[in-house]
Amino acid sequence: MAALIEVRGLHYRYPDGTAALRGVDFHLEEQESVALLGANGSGKTTFALHLNGLLAGEGSVTVCGLGVNRQSAGQIRRKIGFVFQDSDSQLFMPTVIDDVSFGLLNQGHGAQESAGRALAALERVGMASAAAKAPYHLSAGEKKRVAIAGVLAMDPQILVLDEPTTFLDPPAQRALISLLQELPQAKILITHDACFAAELCTRAVFFDKGRIVGEGSVLELVKSFGWDSAVRR
């Protein structure tokens, strides 16, 4: 079976010349959950932004059989749902229901269908009662759930979640783990939280200075890179 995501020799430099990615090879299979681990600035988020064409480097990136480029970006973004680290950046519409419907309306769905699917997505994350609220009236955990609903409503094949546990208290983290475990989509989790990654991911890759320097199970990787103290907690 062909991989959902296939990345070969990906290089990227920031406009100031700093090398952010130095030859990354990566693949993601159907229904697989992979954790991207690594220190701050190691290239995890920069790498993920290439998957839906928000950044364009050198090398090849293929998603669901489509090469990622300017022409295919629209199609690719239907297949990959990206949950950003800062929910405030993702929830820009005046109300929760407007925000969750945003992607559907952009895809050309009618207002009524979009509202129905948005409400269903909100119900799935336990936020249907907040549909009419303004995003700034929500707590950090609620914002994260609404941000996830925003991408779930679009029914993507792949979910990319950038630091999903940031600002979440332990009960909210537990709720998020339960929610993500129920979702059938393939997932890429960018995280520093080894426990969170271990609960959700069957495989992990470790980024260092723009390269993938290790691959294996989460527990193997955190042990070999000295992150195991975080798991023992």
Partner: peptide, 8 residues
């Protein structure tokens, strides 16, 4: 970026 990611 978040807007583009959802097809804006």
């Amino acid at each position: 970026s978040a807007m583009l990611a959802r097809g804006f």
